[in-house]
Design a protein around this nucleic acid. Structure first.
Lengths: 210, 210
DNA sequence: TATCCTATGTAACCAATGTTACTGTACACG
DNA sequence: CGTGTACAGTAACATTGGTTACATAGGATA
């Protein structure tokens, strides 16, 4: 296990901390679409992403979802971090975007490491910083872009995360993530195809205009 | 100056830190509608709010604005904090909502205090936590609510911040904050008035349904 | 092959929001 | 007291996105 942690975090943490992580950390793996954290969950440990990718979702009272952002190798969920430190329940849902492995750090270690390791402090602050930026980006997207632009951005992000210009997904699933209806997505996808930006197949979409 | 700092932060920081703050902190005051931070500004100090209120705005490429949230006494701008620590430029605009006073802390002190004072660490983490929550709330609002609901929420927030059920504002200004047009706001305000939730006067709105 | 299920395409219509254009009104100021 | 300017009301129309309904196609399986 130490090897995977080193691969993903050796440029971030000092040797001693890496050692501690591999001692107290709990390795977990998830398959695609597994739910990692549920809204309202009491969070007692903090995840460090080793491999794979996670999508973070928000839900309203009616149960409608909205994709907030993706997390990749080397990221942590600042939202969860925030819950840990504030001892509050999770305000978001985390779902494995693909096969994913992560180390869970018990929250007791958090404060200890915060005073002990400067690299840990920096990591925590850096995580907050990138998450706030991601949130701003999300707000820009939903506030300033039309659905067709949001859709194209979504497909590009998805292609990037999966390192594959062919995105395996149904129109219905896109509709869930963007908080709209399947018909709207089908309609806009067709328009994007006519403009030459994508190519449509059953169960998959090729992003041409990356 | 030490007195104002004590009034606003004595329940948060230990005596010693309060003392340091009043030594190195730079007191500044702003009038209503003064711009405190501009997008792209290089941030070299971190504000602690003593009195008044600040609104935080986002802007798109076309210069259209969107209100993110308000800050009140005892708050700090986690976004600015984040910029300080990451040595990046401001991604938001901060405008005084009323007469406002704040202490500016030079960023050099940030790291020092983070290792030295536990109360400071907690304050910083707590700030990040509340800002992430605010951002989630903002996302909920723009993603899940219709314009009439957003408008009512806006007026309630505004009334709360100003501690006055009569909000002094023009339809045009509301339109800027909610990123829509004046005509739309006038139309919806009229509907809200007919429903008995508000009462309209020139340059002001009384919020009845708080 | 017949059948069934899921995914997709599309028309027709509706609701919410944005735009343009014009009107009226309060208020400041010469 | 007249006039200009900012603010507000509203009609008419355009556009975007959401809904309903139905048709068709791909692919799995009996």
């Amino acid at each position: 296990m130490i090897q995977e942690i080193e691969d993903a975090y050796s440029f971030v943490f000092e040797k001693e901390l890496l050692q501690e992580i591999s001692e107290v950390g709990n390795l977990k793996t998830f398959d695609e679409n597994d739910r990692i954290i549920e809204i309202g969950d009491h969070v007692t440990s903090m995840p460090l992403l080793l491999n794979g990718a996670i999508k973070i979702l928000r839900e309203d009272k009616e149960g409608d979802e909205l994709l907030l952002y993706f997390l990749e190798r080397g990221d942590t969920c600042a939202m969860t971090l925030s819950c840990c430190l504030g001892h509050t329940k999770s305000e978001i849902r985390a779902v494995a975007e693909m096969e994913t492995s992560l180390v869970m750090i018990p929250i007791e270690k958090m404060e200890e490491w915060t005073s002990k390791y400067k690299s840990w402090r920096n990591f925590v602050f850096e995580s907050y910083h990138s998450r706030l930026s991601e949130m701003l980006d999300t707000i820009d997207t939903i506030a300033f872009l039309n659905m067709d632009e949001r859709l194209l951005k979504y497909l590009r992000d998805k292609a990037k995360i999966n390192q594959n210009e062919i995105v395996q997904i149904t129109h219905q699933q896109i509709a869930y993530d963007l908080h709209t209806s399947r018909v709207v997505i089908s309609r806009l996808l067709k328009k994007l195809e006519l403009k030459g930006k994508i190519s449509l197949q059953r169960n998959s979409i090729q992003v041409i205009d990356l």
